[in-house]
Each structure stands twice: as structure tokens, then as C-alpha cells.
């Protein structure tokens, strides 16, 4: 698998009890060139998915995670909201293309939420508070490009790989 594209749209009933990360990762690592990056790719997918679900679909606020107690409260609220979820969706559009030196994995993830003021968030330089704020920092660091799109309910992350990486991993 070298040049491919797939979309997956998950609705409320599915989001309640289905974890799409193993499935998505399984598809990505069908490309041997991507398989050597699976740990990093998992982290990118997990961050983008949890942001879409937690903030976009469920409307949870990360500022709750200011201390250990808030961190635990955040995840118990998440469980409650998810159990009662009646509407909402997350769309994955994932595409892999080859380049002269390797390839690019383009991940576009859109949620049914109303978005947020990402310009202000970007201007604040991704403020980290307590136990939150590291997810997007990670994605930005691991990916060649990262953008918020539309009202902020859609993101695009581009992960690039080059052939020498593959050779290094094999030695």
C-alpha cells in the first residue's frame, strides 16, 4: 500500500463504545514504510481523536485538568457524557502519498462541535496548565504541518517520512 485514501465517519452510537484507534493504526501500518513509525503515529492519532471527541463532541474543557483531582474528574465526566451521547460525529479523512524522498500521511479529522477560537490559542503559544496542554504540542512537534481549519472543529496534520528512516530502523 503506497498511494491510498480512506474516510471513516463515526456517529454517536458508535462513539459511545467503539475505540477506532486500533483499527486506524492497523490500516496505516499496512504500509511497511509507516509501520516503523507506529508508536509515533499512534500518539498523533490518539491526540487528534481525543481532542475531537472530548472537546468537539463532548464539550469538555481541559482547564479542569489543573490538578490531580481535576484530572480524575475530567475523565469521570468524560465517561458519563460519552455513555449518554445521543448526537455528534467524527470524520477521519486519511491519505498517504509518496514523494521523491519518502511519503506524506495527511490526517484530516473533523468533529461535529462548534469549534473554538484557535487564533487566540495559537497566540497564547499553547499554554500548558497543570496536567493538560501537551497533546497538541506533541502533534505539532511530530508532524511537519499542523493546521486548524474552519471554525476550529477540523484539523489537518501532515506526517512526513523519508527513506533513510526505514534503513536506520532496520540496522
Amino acid at each position: 500500500m503506497q498511494e491510498w485514501h480512506f474516510s471513516l465517519e463515526l456517529h454517536a452510537q458508535t462513539l459511545r463504545n467503539f475505540d477506532p484507534l486500533p483499527l486506524l493504526l492497523h490500516i496505516l501500518v499496512e504500509s511497511p514504510e509507516l509501520a516503523v513509525h507506529k508508536g509515533v503515529l499512534y500518539t498523533i492519532l490518539a491526540e487528534l481523536y481525543s481532542n475531537a471527541l472530548d472537546h468537539g463532541v463532548l464539550g469538555l474543557d481541559s482547564s479542569m485538568k489543573a490538578d490531580a483531582k481535576g484530572f480524575a474528574t475530567y475523565y469521570s465526566q468524560r465517561e458519563m457524557l460519552l455513555n449518554d451521547l445521543m448526537q455528534g460525529y467524527i470524520r477521519f479523512n486519511i491519505k498517504h502519498v509518496t514523494t521523491s524522498t519518502g511519503g506524506k500521511l495527511i490526517l484530516r479529522i473533523e468533529d461535529s462541535g462548534s469549534g473554538f477560537d484557535y487564533q487566540q490559542y495559537l497566540n497564547n503559544n499553547f499554554k500548558k496548565e497543570g496536567y493538560s496542554g501537551r497533546g497538541i504540542l506533541l502533534v505539532r512537534d511530530l508532524c511537519e504541518e499542523f493546521h486548524y481549519l474552519g471554525a476550529g472543529n477540523c484539523v489537518e496534520a501532515i506526517y512526513s517520512w523519508q527513506y533513510p528512516d526505514v534503513r536506520e530502523q532496520k540496522t
Partner: peptide, 13 residues
């Protein structure tokens, strides 16, 4: 093999 930022929060706690 895999971790995400929620694991980082757990380590910090």
C-alpha cells in the same frame, strides 16, 4: 508500545 498525553498527565499526578 503506545502512550498519549493522558498517560503523561497520569505520570505527573
Amino acid at each position: 508500545d503506545y502512550l498519549d498525553s493522558s498517560a503523561l498527565g497520569m505520570l505527573l499526578a
